[in-house]
């Protein structure tokens, strides 16, 4: 099967899976106990006023009718209006998503690059102290509890030492100053990104390193490595040009899926660092029964994961000419 046919077939599959996900999500949210109005009302509000609010949100309709409306609107590009914001959810997601992408995509790429780099080195020195040390360190980093390490970093580097801002994405005072130029603002965002980035990097680098290490170890046992050695090639060339490219594949899968899942923003990271991304919105939407916002967030994440899978498949075929679908 050629690549074009593969993409077409997988796209149809994605559409079907997406529709199933949409239906399951709709049912999950609407059948779960609780409603968004309960938290909006004060003891003074009468039951009739609360019913009026429910009716305005369209929640008084039979479930099947709500579902049909949702499907109809969804495919017309209308993802609904957030119960709490009173704004189209697409606007809310559109506003938060770039922040999430900026932080998490950067962290995934940096961790993957460092993980691959160190993974191939420690695999090359298998059994030596550097391998043992780095492997143990990677395991420790990978199993660290993110909110704990994040708070610890904030306390040390932002509160005690004062190298970084405590939280957020920008310094309000700086942005409010009319004399602040574009580059200063960009640098300010970069400055705010460093600490969350460092936290995410430490948590994720070990994962890529270990994957790369184990993949590399398998590759190093292959006959063509022996052949390369017999040809008298340098160790560095064998490692970087013959072994490493063949060990990349599992890392590619992992990076692809991590990128997709990173769209949900690692709600914990965003909460601790007050990073205004989609993960925090997701938590708010779920805990406050804001169905349209929560569903749109989940559907968006699902779509990205599905598409990322397709992309990984295509990249696989590109990286490894032996793979044909």
């Amino acid at each position: 099967m050629n690549l074009r046919k593969l993409i077409l077939r997988r796209s149809l599959e994605i559409l079907l899976i997406f529709f199933v996900i949409l239906t399951i999500l709709f049912l999950l949210f609407h059948l779960a106990p609780g409603d968004p109005v309960s938290r909006m009302v004060e003891p003074g509000m009468t039951a009739e006023d609360a019913e009026m609010l429910i009716s305005q949100l369209g929640l008084d309709q039979p479930l099947w009718l709500q579902y049909l409306y949702y499907i109809k609107n969804f495919f017309a590009g209308n993802f609904g209006i957030s119960f709490h914001y009173g704004q189209p959810v697409i606007n809310i997601i559109g506003m938060r998503l770039p922040n999430t992408i900026l932080l998490f995509t950067t962290s995934v790429f940096l961790s993957a690059l460092a993980g691959v780099f160190w993974g191939k080195i420690v695999a090359w020195y298998k059994g030596r102290p550097v391998d043992t040390g780095v492997t143990i360190l990677s395991l420790v980093c990978h199993t660290l509890f993110l909110p704990w390490i994040a708070l610890l970093f904030i306390w040390i580097f932002a509160y005690r030492v004062g190298w970084f801002p405590l939280n957020g994405m920008i310094t309000p005072e700086l942005w409010l100053d009319p004399s602040t130029g574009f580059f200063a603002k960009a640098a300010d965002i970069g400055h705010h990104m460093l600490l969350p980035l460092l936290t995410l990097f430490i948590i994720h680098v070990g994962e890529y390193l270990l994957i790369m290490r184990s993949s590399m170890l398998e590759t190093l046992n292959e006959d063509y490595i022996l052949t390369a050695r017999a040809k008298g090639l340098s160790e560095k060339r064998i490692r970087n040009r013959h072994a490493a490219p063949n060990a990349y594949l599992p890392v590619v899968t992992n990076v692809g899926l991590s990128l997709a899942f990173s769209i949900n923003g690692g709600a914990l990271t965003e909460t601790v660092f007050s990073w205004p991304g989609i993960g925090r919105e997701l938590i708010f939407a779920v805990s406050n029964n804001d169905y349209p916002l929560a569903m749109a967030c989940f559907l968006f994440i699902s779509l990205v994961v599905l598409v990322a899978n397709l992309v990984v498949d295509v990249v696989y075929a590109y990286l490894d000419p032996r793979i044909r679908y």
């Binding site: 310094t171 005072e173 700086l174 602040t180 200063a184 300010d188």
Partner: peptide, 13 residues
């Protein structure tokens, strides 16, 4: 760069 920015942001308050 981080330190420089920190000083700048505090001064602007």
């Amino acid at each position: 760069l981080s330190l420089l920015l920190l000083v700048a942001s505090t001064a602007g308050a």
